[in-house]
């Protein structure tokens, strides 16, 4: 595994790739970024919480026009992973309105994003149809 790096801190690689959130111990609010305190209750204690890898599409769009360097088209979605909302691409589908549906069941998947000069491969995540 030493030759792989997760695309973001909150992606855990290994045999069972999954996302991990900073969960406020006081109110249970979950965040994916580095925290100073909780946006919900201002609490300052957090624990790591594994996020479910299966969920359903609450909303999506297909971005076909973006800033230079952003690979288009791509399907962006908000996925409700058993109560935790996650933003991510829908992958391994045609980026067309016919291929993605609201409420669709999806599951987390990882894919390679390329290697750096040391041969370390960055691994990204998305959601694919369950």
């Amino acid at each position: 595994m030493s030759n792989q790096i997760p695309f973001v801190d909150y992606l855990v690689l290994g045999d069972h790739p999954h996302l991990v959130a900073n969960e406020c111990t006081a109110c249970g609010a979950r965040f994916f970024d580095r925290r100073n305190a909780c946006a919900g209750c201002s609490g300052t204690e957090f624990r790591k919480a594994d996020v479910a890898t299966d969920g359903e599409i609450m909303s999506f769009t297909i971005v076909t026009f973006a800033a230079p360097g952003v690979p288009v088209p791509f399907v962006s979605a908000i996925v409700n992973c058993q109560g935790t909302s996650v933003r991510g691409n829908i992958i391994n589908v045609e980026p067309s309105p016919e291929s993605v549906t609201m409420g669709q069941k999806v599951t987390l998947a990882t894919y390679p994003l390329g290697a750096d000069e040391n041969g370390v491969e960055a691994i990204g995540f998305g959601f694919q149809p369950a």
Binding site: V8, D9, T61, A66, A67, P71, F74, N89, V120, A122
Partner: peptide, 28 residues
């Protein structure tokens, strides 16, 4: 590209997230 990956920012991302972790652009 080419250099070694360095996690940056509050999400510790190693490259631009737009288009790879959905979109935060206005239209999308």
């Amino acid at each position: 590209a080419g250099a070694s990956w360095e996690p940056q920012g509050r999400f510790g991302e190693v490259m631009e997230t737009e288009g790879r972790i959905g979109t935060s652009g206005m239209p999308g």
